[in-house]
Design a protein around this nucleic acid. Structure first.
Lengths: 135, 135
DNA sequence: CGGCATCCAATTCGATACTG
DNA sequence: CAGTATCGAATTGGATGCCG
């Protein structure tokens, strides 16, 4: 887990990115990076939940309806790999683990706000289109 | 295809979204909407390519290295369903089809810029972490 | 409690062949 | 030219059980 953070990303770099830029759009690699970091069924909700403060593993399971332990574990690890989340093991018995957003995690705020704004506008647009369709 | 635009989104609405908001993060549904619209292996590159102007189907295949006709067709349809891309069939023989970004498509610009910015910073962060690791 | 291993289902992606 | 159809591979997500 020590070197995993780098290893995984290096693999991605070598595999299909960072080398085959075309002239059409020079930013799509960086955009994909961002999308990849946020991709996964639960990551947005996870970040949302942690944005209100530290939470333990079971608290997260309770606060995110429908998530299974395996997925929670997996997506937390991915967020941790990318430095967005900090994991702290507490000296209790049985073990307790606390998760929290890092400062770097909070740096996603502008993007997330942009996406929330556009998503809301998009939904309104869809609903408007629906009511037009009905007439 | 006439009603598909609405139908697909309505299905999504009924299935798992728009109803189960929790108190933790009230925006994650809208954020997911945005992510869903941009998800897919080629959509970002497609938008990037079309941001330089109209292109025909074969031009897109030529400008986006590695994409197969099936995927191009599929992702163009999804973008069209969401109103981001306009499709025009020209009266030629054989048929020619032109694709272009709509005004609405260009409304993604703030998000895409935000994501490109964060993605670049993230990559720099990773590279910096790598060189630290080497020492 | 906080996971991991295993197995299974669903979705996504790609290669190839075919059509008006 | 601009697709569709079909098949198969790969990735992703979920259910269950085990373990320290």
């Amino acid at each position: 887990m020590e070197t995993g953070f780098l290893k995984e990303i290096i693999i991605k770099m070598d595999k299909e990115k960072y080398l085959d830029m075309d002239a059409c759009s020079t930013h799509h690699l960086a955009i994909r990076d961002t999308m990849d970091v946020l991709s996964g069924k639960w990551k947005i909700r996870l970040i949302g939940s942690l944005s209100f403060g530290k939470k333990r593993f079971m608290e997260l399971i309770g606060s995110i309806d429908g998530i299974a332990a395996k997925m929670l574990s997996k997506e937390l690890q991915e967020l941790e790999l990318n430095g967005l989340v900090k994991r702290t093991v507490l000296n209790t018995k049985p073990v307790t683990v606390e998760y929290e957003l890092t400062e770097y995690g909070y740096s996603l705020k502008p993007i997330i706000n942009e996406m929330a704004l556009w998503g809301m506008q998009h939904r309104e647009r869809v609903i408007r289109a629906m009511s037009v369709k009905k007439e």
